[in-house]
Design a protein around this nucleic acid. Structure first.
Lengths: 334, 334
DNA sequence: TTGTAAGCGTTATCAA
DNA sequence: TTGATAACGCTTACAA
């Protein structure tokens, strides 16, 4: 790989001049610029981003931490962040936390070491105090899909409590009273908030919370499958089931179908997130829209504004969930 | 951020010694090591990976290029690569190509500039010659899910032609003769190969290829939806439809259902890829397994072996597709 | 407009 | 076992 020295030599100019050309510094005469460009081309020169980054202490890259690389939720989020950033000529370095405290910390540590200009993270296992401390550090950190008290300017989040409320309200409004709930792991802030919203809706409509109809699984299909299985095996009676996300709902549908339960006639289902596949389930899933891609974009914009001095008209820190009505809920049989 | 200088000063040793400690060089006395470690802790020292990388010309990171950050296919692939690499203490830098030649090249260029120790790429728009030239370069490049003649040692690929053959054979064996096909964009090698396999199966069973029953869409749900719509609007008659991937199949199901077509009784459907959601469709989708996560892992192992000198017992370059039978095919009505 | 030279924070080669 | 010191490839005052 050729270096700036060789380019300078071939073009008959100094290092500084070559550097100016790569950095589109206008203070280079056209003639000189052309000489340099020619030399670069004949040598196939490609600036070493590592060296640039070391010298300028700006890497033009932002570190991303997500729990997983697969799954609709993270896919949307990463895609939102990346497309926004790329458009601005910035790049992403992505790593994973697997919803485990140690791994999340390691991932952040890695990104910090890489001289990222900023971090955009989605963390679930790490606690608020850690995040507060992290935000004190030299490099700006933005948190997606989680609200930390006192870090208002760093968090792009969804009102999950409201979402949980809306989800449950959907079935209540169709006359359902026996409503099961399958939650995500309760150490995850969003899973917890959704449950809180569920309880508030129940309370608001004077339906007592029945803990026999409450199951904590995980955010994956298997969680829904197992939860549904649990309820059926315990012979619980319910006409509707609210799921903490769409994957869970999908797992529920799967088990229900195995048991010959007619959907949606015998069981109404609500999901959460409005994942891409929610509309391809059968029946099409009524769910709560979670604009995670938009939140990713917004986090990227925040970085663009605060770190790269771009003009961004408005930043939305708090996103609101909304109901996406499809076909998985029916009126309760009276 | 504190540097190695400050650590050295506080510990009362030289730069070199500190460096030895960070790099776990055994030639440091325990006493000295302890002094250094203590100094690091009190300063909260964190080595600057960029500087390390510049000085050592090894970044311990491998560059990944995928078409998209979302979608089951890429999610599985990235997850496979990352988990294998991370276990070995290596990290990934991920960027996207969006199936466009220019963007794919830009992405590769970016990764090359970042001093990645190796590249693992999934490219669709760039041609074979470009890849051959790329593989001549200084930094090792491995290609996932695509076979390039002459780059046997660099490609981890699936026999898509065979997959296409198997998919079509599934419906033929159930007595179907009027078989529609919805393909992916034909500039993509795998999309093309799958079509080739489809035609071979038709031919093998003496069913003439009917181009009225052939539609080229894209690899997304909308492609399947539109394809199915096209066939219906053209009033084509067919009892089975083979889809170039599961997303397409999902789109087909969606449109079919809108038209009140009874699945799978009135229409048999086969997908391709065995995406996670294939089993959550209704009817559960019969499809062709595409071990894309495994292929990602294998690519990572290849890097571990060739670039990081790890002992890896066996490397599989060519993966075989297999049929995953579920419920979306029925015997043809006689 | 161009060049000189001092960093950026490490590693690595020699000596000691 | 340790320490000087020269790279690594670039940016950026400062000078010219």
């Amino acid at each position: 790989m050729s270096t700036i020295y060789e380019v300078a030599k071939l073009a008959g100019v100094s290092l500084a001049t070559v550097s100016r050309v790569t950095n589109k510094n206008p203070r280079v005469s056209n003639k000189t610029r052309q000489k340099v460009v020619d030399a670069m081309n004949t040598l196939g020169y490609r600036p070493n981003a590592i060296a640039q980054s070391l010298a300028s202490s700006c890497s033009n890259s932002v570190g991303i931490l997500v729990s997983e690389l697969h799954g609709a939720f993270f896919g949307e989020m990463m895609a939102g962040i990346e497309s926004e950033l790329r458009e601005a000529g910035k790049h992403v370095i992505i790593t994973t936390g697997h919803s485990e405290e140690e791994k999340e910390k390691q991932g952040i540590e890695f990104l910090l070491q890489r001289n990222c200009d900023a971090l955009i993270i989605h963390v679930e296992a790490v606690n608020d105090d850690y995040l507060k401390q992290l935000c004190q550090g030299d490099i700006p950190v933005y948190i997606v899909s989680r609200y930390v008290d006192g870090l208002n300017e760093n968090c792009i989040s969804l009102d999950n409590e409201l979402g949980g409320y809306l989800a449950t309200e959907q079935v209540i409004q169709q006359g359902h009273k026996d409503i099961a709930y399958i939650a995500g792991q309760q150490f995850k802030p969003d899973a917890k908030d959704r449950v809180a919203g569920h309880k508030r809706a129940l309370n608001r409509y004077n339906i007592p919370f029945n803990k026999r109809l409450f199951y904590v699984g995980d955010f994956y299909e298997i969680g829904g499958y197992n939860g549904m299985k649990h309820f059926i095996e315990q012979q619980e009676k319910f006409t509707a089931i609210v799921c903490a996300n769409d994957e869970i709902a999908s797992g529920v549908m799967d088990y229900a179908r195995e048991q010959g339960i007619n959907l949606p006639d015998e069981l109404s289902i609500v999901g959460f997130d409005n994942s891409i596949f929610a509309q391809y389930l059968y029946p099409k899933l009524t769910t709560i829209n979670n604009p995670v891609g938009e939140m990713g974009r917004m986090a990227a914009k925040l970085v663009l504004r605060n770190v790269y001095q771009q003009r961004i008209p408005t930043i939305t820190f708090a996103f609101q969930p909304s109901v996406v009505s499809r076909n998985s809920i029916t009126k309760v049989n009276v």
